[in-house]
Simulated assay, not measured.
Amino acid sequence: MSVLKEVRFPAAAELPMNIWVDDSDSAVDIVDALALSPFATGTQPWARLASLERVRAEAALTPPDGRLVRTAQEEDGSDARLFCGDGWTLRVVRHRNRCATVSVTAVSEELARSVLAKTTEGAVEPPPETDHIEMGFWWFGPHGPRRSDKPITSPSWEQISGNYSARVREAVGRVMTVTPAEVSGRLLLLHGPPGTGKTSLLRTLAREWRQWCQVDCVLDPERLFNDPGYLMEVAIGDSGEDGERWRLLVLEDCDELIRAGAKEATGQGLSRLLNLTDGLLGQGRDVLVAITTNEDLARLHPATVRPGRCLAQVEVGPLSREESVRWLADGGAEEFAGQVGADGATLAELFAARSGRATTPAAAPDTPGLYL
Rank of each mutant, 00 (worst) to 15 (best):
G282W: 00
A57G: 09
G284W: 03
A358N: 14
V325I: 12
T204G: 08
K150R: 15
V289T: 05
D343P: 06
F225H: 08
I133E: 02
L111R: 11
D22S: 14
R247L: 03
S114D: 13
G173S: 15
R147C: 15
L319C: 06
W20Y: 07
L281I: 09
E75C: 03
T119N: 09
I291R: 03
L281R: 07
L347A: 02
A333C: 14
T346Q: 07
T304I: 13
P128V: 03
A35P: 09
A123V: 03
K150S: 13
L116S: 10
T120L: 05
R174T: 03
G192S: 01
A312S: 15
L231Q: 08
P180L: 04
L187G: 07
L273K: 09
G77T: 09
A333S: 14
V124N: 09
P193N: 00
Q211V: 08
G122Y: 06
E129I: 12
P361H: 07
G341A: 06
L257Q: 00
T277H: 07
D286A: 02
L297I: 15
E121H: 08
S355D: 08
T266A: 07
W209K: 07
R147M: 10
R96C: 03
C217R: 14
V168S: 13
P128H: 01
V21Y: 07
G136F: 04
D131V: 11
M17W: 01
A80S: 15
H95K: 11
V55T: 02
I19Y: 02
D149V: 10
R169F: 04
G141P: 11
D227M: 08
L49V: 15
L251V: 06
D65R: 14
K5G: 10
L270Q: 03
A303P: 00
S239H: 09
V325M: 11
V314L: 01
A60P: 00
A353E: 03
D227Q: 11
D253Y: 00
R98P: 03
A348P: 10
W138H: 15
F39Y: 13
G240C: 08
E295S: 11
E75P: 06
T304P: 00
H143T: 12
W138T: 14
C84L: 05
F140V: 15
L201I: 15
E74Y: 01
E109H: 11
S271F: 01
L300I: 11
L281C: 05
